[in-house]
Design a protein around this nucleic acid. Structure first.
Lengths: 144, 144
DNA sequence: TGGTACGTTCAATACATACTGAACGTACAT
DNA sequence: ATGTACGTTCAGTATGTATTGAACGTACCA
């Protein structure tokens, strides 16, 4: 599932492994159970931590890092979406500014500039709306 | 933007080209203006049509296909998201059924099966909610 | 100090996906 | 029929991205 959504295979494998485990598991466990490299386990688990999909837990008497799956999916989707999509929306906004700036120096006298400026304003109107919907109400619906 | 969202570069180029054009354009125009192949223009424009992002228009006295950008972004996003994400959610649902079916034949007597079944039910609860939110209210917010 | 047992990094590589363009199908004109 | 001007298809290839694993950093222990 994560693969087809463009989030990478390993991340999904690790989450599934932890989700269907009855207790904490370490990096070496993941490596062995899933046949992935040490590096993948390390990076994948960090990605998942950033999305609040897994949490690190301490097991006394052992200095390895152990992880457990967080099963509050709404929270996970929110973090992951905010990270993958939301971040980009911000970048697109400044791109619009940049383009409109360059547009100022174009004036070939036949009204093309006004046409282009109108198009950009139309774009910006939607961009604003999208970012607004994004920030809170849309995602709260999934969270419950 | 489409590139970084995993929708391919060409699709975004074509849409932008049409969006900032003052009239209909043909496949050859796109090819020339964007430096893309004939095949890419053909496939890209079909993708965009499927998402209601562009529409074919008739130019009398010319039997080439001409296209114009549709600028109702809400509509476009809705179609594109439904196609790329929504379709997959359905597939994931039947995967859950499949896994639960295989689970029935596992019983090692130590209660593991019950644990796994619980996890799957938890998953399914979210899956149902997600598909519900998907189908209408979420997307209507963006449409206006 | 030196040794051990970890986690992390990142250049090299494998992999999946998007793009190309030659070959093809089709509709129209002559 | 034959030629022309299109649009479409898909195997081959280019491109971008995920994964690997050896080298490295760090904390702890004896």
């Amino acid at each position: 599932m994560t693969q087809s959504l463009g989030l990478g295979r390993v991340v999904g494998q690790i989450y599934a492994y932890l989700y269907f485990s009855s207790g904490p598991r370490g990096l070496a466990d993941m490596q062995h159970a899933l046949g992935i490299s040490k590096g993948s386990a390390s990076m994948g688990v960090r990605q998942l931590e950033q999305w609040h999909a897994v949490k690190k837990v301490w097991v006394r008497g052992d200095r390895k890092d152990y992880y457990e799956a967080n099963d509050w999916f709404g929270q996970i989707v929110k973090s992951a979406v905010a990270d993958t999509i939301g971040k980009k929306l911000g970048a697109y906004s400044s791109l619009l500014d940049e383009v409109e700036g360059e547009l100022a120096s174009l004036d070939n006298g036949n009204g093309e500039r006004d046409f282009l400026r109108g198009r950009i304003q139309h774009l910006r109107k939607f961009q604003k709306r999208a970012q607004g919907v994004w920030s809170s109400p849309l995602l709260k619906m999934l969270m419950k």
